[in-house]
C-alpha cells in the first residue's frame, strides 16, 4: 500500500475528528459551520487521495470533489442566511438560546 495514500487518509481522519469536536462543542452558529467545513474538508482529502493513488484514470473521483465543494458553498450560503434571520429576530447567533423548537 502506498505510504502517501496512508498519510493523506490520516490527515483526512484528523480533520474529520477536529471538525466533529468543533461542530459539537461550539455554541455559536458561525463556529458550528466552521466545524462542518472541516468535516467536509476531511472527506475531500480522502476523495482526492483515493482518486490519485487508486483510480487516476477515472475522472469521476474529481467529480466527487467538485460535488463536496458545492456542498460547502451551499452550507455557507444557507447557514449565513439563517444566521442573518436569527440575528435580526433575536440579536444573537448563540445556539444555546435557540430553544423555540424544543418540545
Amino acid at each position: 500500500m502506498s505510504p502517501e495514500l496512508i498519510i493523506a487518509l490520516i490527515s483526512g481522519a484528523a480533520l474529520f475528528g477536529v471538525g466533529i469536536y468543533g461542530a459539537l462543542s461550539q455554541t455559536n452558529l458561525v463556529m458550528i459551520m466552521m466545524g462542518v467545513e472541516l468535516i467536509l474538508a476531511g472527506a475531500m482529502v480522502n476523495l482526492v487521495a483515493f482518486w490519485r493513488y487508486l483510480h487516476p484514470d477515472n475522472p469521476a473521483g474529481q467529480m466527487f470533489v467538485l460535488i463536496i465543494m458545492t456542498v460547502m458553498a451551499i452550507e455557507m450560503a444557507v447557514g449565513f442566511g439563517v444566521a442573518i434571520a436569527r440575528f435580526r429576530a433575536k440579536g444573537s447567533v448563540e445556539m444555546e438560546e435557540a430553544t423555540e423548537l424544543k418540545g
Binding site: 481522519a13 471538525g19 466533529i20
Partner: peptide, 8 residues
C-alpha cells in the same frame, strides 16, 4: 472527536 479520528 477522538473516537471518530481513531475509527477513521
Amino acid at each position: 472527536g477522538f473516537v471518530s479520528f481513531v475509527a477513521a
